[in-house]
């Protein structure tokens, strides 16, 4: 009976998206021969070469107010560097920052001037585009046979779930088990290759009193020629 309830709970978890607020039990382990494949499936959601992403972003802020912005994100996986710009729909640059060993804010207007905002946006980009930096990762599967990788670091636990249709989800938990972030990547058409393929839609949900929701539609993506930010 408990096993059935557990399976129902897991089923609900992965069919209702980011509905689970606390750390679920460790994933069902896979045989050692399968672990490499599962870890590789989780790893495939991250770009392995420098890339640019341009998104149309719908923001739902605390209190329910809505805004629209355009985001440009350059990611450099090897040095784990980021260059990002936020601009209004009209094209006015509101925020620009580079994170290359240290965070440098090149431009910030109005509500984007806070360091807390800059740190938060860089943390979201890091969580979306770079795998967990440290800690042991456990490979498993969900009840629906999705690949499930859990990586434990000192201060966080990161779950990556990769569904069989290519859609994926990243959950970031505090050591207490409280979920801090949920990022979902969804594809209009399941990716055909096993290489990185950017999702058509990203949804970022941040928990807490200052929580927010970003719905990001991919407008364009390009590979970048340079390996590092200049």
């Amino acid at each position: 009976m408990r096993t059935i309830l557990k399976q129902i709970a897991l089923l609900l978890l992965f069919t209702t998206g980011c509905a689970h607020y606390n750390l679920p039990p460790d994933p069902l382990a896979v045989p050692p021969a399968m672990q490499h494949g599962v870890l590789a499936a989780c790893r495939q959601i991250y770009p392995d070469n420098p890339r640019q992403f341009v998104h149309a972003i719908d923001i739902t802020a605390p209190g329910g107010t809505k805004s629209a912005l355009i985001g440009i994100t350059n990611v450099f996986p090897a040095p784990r560097s980021i260059h990002c710009v936020l601009m209004s729909v009209e094209g006015l640059v509101l925020f620009e920052a580079i994170d290359h060993n240290e965070l440098i804010i090149k431009k910030a207007i109005g509500p984007f001037q806070s360091t807390a905002f800059a740190n938060a946006i860089m943390a979201d980009i890091t969580l979306t585009y770079f795998p967990a930096r440290q800690g042991a990762c456990r490979a498993g599967v969900t009840a629906l046979a999705s690949a499930w990788c859990r990586c434990r670091a000192l201060e966080t636990i990161t779950d990556v779930i990769r569904q069989t249709n290519g859609n994926w989800q990243i959950d970031l938990y505090a050591p207490t088990g409280r979920r801090l972030r949920c990022i979902r990547g969804e594809y209009i058409h399941p990716p055909l290759s096993e290489n990185f393929h950017p999702p058509d839609q990203l949804t970022v949900s941040a928990a807490g009193l200052t929580g927010y929701r970003l719905e990001m539609r991919l407008l364009s993506t390009d590979t970048l020629d340079k390996d590092t930010i200049e």
Partner: peptide
């Protein structure tokens, strides 16, 4: 006043004041 298209209809965008615009 700015309106953005979200989830099938236009909604008022009052989250960010853009004096420059």
């Amino acid at each position: 006043t700015r309106y953005v298209f979200s989830q099938g209809h236009f909604v008022k965008d009052d989250g960010i004041r853009l004096e420059g615009v």
